[in-house]
Design a binder for these strands. Structure first.
Lengths: 196, 196
DNA sequence: CCGGAAGCGGAGTTCCGGTTTCCCTTGTTT
DNA sequence: AAACAAGGGAAACCGGAACTCCGCTTCCGG
């Protein structure tokens, strides 16, 4: 009796191998070309036929979704890790910086993130919920420590990350997004009364 | 001898009329659907045939470019107007706010803006240069008045506007981008030494 | 009011990329 | 090692959307 961890039943050995290859080649190409990446090419780079790709992922969007889900998973891990940081403000800074770094150079995900409210990605909600929980804790801690504006929320966090991402997309390769993030953090980390 | 103001030679009366219609219907549909907007539909809404559209704009991208150029023109005007504001900081705030408002609900331009470094829009450079000049003056004035971080630049301005735009795109309809802009302005308007 | 150039329309062409199909190959099981 | 299923491959298929072509219509100067 297999536990069928997520849904992959007793996949034949070679099949599993191919699946991995497809995912990794998909990640590469979506990273480079965004959603424009072509199924043909993904298959080719994975060294399999198109049919095989479709055996594993019924549709292009399914493949895309799988990668996005992975990324959110990664975010949740990053956040969890960052939460261990002793300094409250640094913890928040770390999540943001590390998350952004994780996405650098992944055009596909950048677009996905910026437009993620438009499409309804399948099983992303779950991962998103975990992320939200952890990040909310981090924010709360930072607020309590007086390290950031006390009206800063998880929603804001999302917006701001989105903004940083847009700079990544807009000026790929230049590290300008760091500047953008820095500006933003600067604003966030100052009590309301000081400005103006 | 005609002066041939931009490039529109002795266009026949009806042709000119159609051109206008195409532009305005194009603007509408690009605003609603983004670059996905279809030439067929644009033609239909303009009440002309597809052939006519292609007579005026050799390619879809050409049409898109024309609209983007118009928008940049508009930005330059907004900036020029804002420059007259007496208060230095308010002038800067005004450009940003008005520009953002101008773009609200124009999905096509939002995307164009976020990705505007990727494609090389034809004659946009000119409009962009004007904008840069005016905005730079506004920023300098604000800096001199001690109203914003003294390392704030036109580049930053672009990034930040892009970020705000991304929220517009991400959460269309919600006015959330105002919050985003507010957060950003807050950060920008505080001297460096205060934060942290 | 005529001639013809400029403009129009929209059906058809072309290209492109996701998806399906179907037959062959390979792994697994007994 | 035979049989059977699971997996693989790639040649069509298919739809959609940008663009072309060419006969017809409209404007406008003489």
């Amino acid at each position: 009796m297999k536990t069928m961890s997520t849904e992959q039943r007793t996949l034949r050995a070679d099949a599993r191998r191919n699946r991995e290859r497809i995912i990794s080649s998909g990640r590469e190409l979506f990273a480079r070309d965004g959603p424009e990446a072509q199924m043909d090419e993904i298959a080719a780079r994975a060294g399999v036929g198109i049919g095989t790709v479709y055996r594993h992922f019924p549709t292009k969007e399914a493949l895309l979704t799988a990668m996005v889900r992975d990324r959110f998973q990664e975010f949740a891990e990053i956040a969890t890790l960052a939460e261990e940081t002793a300094d409250a403000r640094e913890a928040l800074e770390t999540v943001m910086l590390r998350s952004a770094e994780a996405v650098e150079g992944d055009v596909g995900f950048q677009l996905a993130m910026m437009g993620s409210n438009q499409l309804e990605w399948d099983g992303i909600e779950e991962q998103k919920a975990v992320l939200a929980k952890v990040v909310t804790r981090i924010i709360r801690r930072a607020v309590d420590a007086g390290a950031v504006r006390d009206d800063f929320t998880f929603e804001d966090f999302g917006m701001v990350m989105c903004g940083t991402t847009s700079t990544m997309y807009y000026k790929p390769g230049s590290g300008d997004w760091r500047r953008h993030l820095e500006l933003t953090l600067h604003g966030v980390s100052v009590p309301l009364s000081v400005a103006r």
